[in-house]
Simulated assay, not measured.
Amino acid sequence: MSESRPLSAIPPVAARAIAFVTILLGGLAGGLIGYALVDLQTSGDNTVAKGFGLLIGAVLCAAGLAIVAVLALRAMGEWREINDRERAGHAPR
């Protein structure tokens, strides 16, 4: 018996949640790296420079991971669509 679910290219909620958490963790890691990089290159009390390093590192890393996550989720949606077509007997030969 086949599972009845509406056809949709939207990835499962669990996959979207994992992608979101991964982007947040990547932003955290990028921020820490940016902060440490500026901290190593400067001396004294440079809180503004350290803050910019933290912000730029976090944004760049989170943006890069967001791109990867979107591509992975789209690939997952296409994979599900292909499997749905094969199960329905509409797969190309």
Rank of each mutant, 00 (worst) to 15 (best):
17 A>I: 12
88 A>D: 11
61 C>F: 14
3 E>A: 12
92 P>T: 04
20 F>G: 14
93 R>L: 04
78 E>L: 14
40 L>P: 00
35 Y>I: 01
21 V>L: 15
14 A>N: 04
60 L>I: 01
82 I>W: 05
1 M>H: 15
69 A>C: 08
73 L>I: 02
74 R>P: 00
73 L>F: 08
81 E>A: 10
22 T>W: 15
88 A>E: 14
67 I>T: 04
4 S>M: 10
46 N>M: 12
58 A>I: 01
85 R>C: 02
39 D>G: 01
33 I>T: 08
64 G>F: 12
69 A>P: 05
37 L>V: 09
44 G>S: 04
75 A>Y: 12
93 R>T: 06
36 A>E: 15
34 G>A: 05
1 M>V: 05
50 K>D: 01
64 G>T: 02
74 R>T: 02
19 A>I: 06
54 L>M: 11
3 E>R: 13
47 T>M: 10
68 V>L: 14
84 D>Y: 03
7 L>R: 10
42 T>C: 04
45 D>P: 07
38 V>Q: 04
15 A>L: 14
78 E>M: 11
73 L>A: 02
45 D>K: 07
16 R>C: 15
56 I>Y: 07
79 W>M: 09
33 I>H: 01
4 S>A: 13
62 A>C: 00
2 S>Y: 14
91 A>M: 12
10 I>F: 11
67 I>V: 11
57 G>D: 02
65 L>G: 00
65 L>M: 13
14 A>L: 15
45 D>M: 07
41 Q>E: 09
44 G>V: 05
61 C>Q: 13
8 S>G: 01
54 L>A: 03
12 P>Y: 10
34 G>D: 06
6 P>G: 12
10 I>R: 14
89 G>D: 01
80 R>M: 12
13 V>G: 06
92 P>R: 08
56 I>C: 00
3 E>M: 10
66 A>T: 08
31 G>A: 02
87 R>I: 03
28 L>G: 11
76 M>K: 13
79 W>F: 06
69 A>N: 03
20 F>T: 13
81 E>H: 01
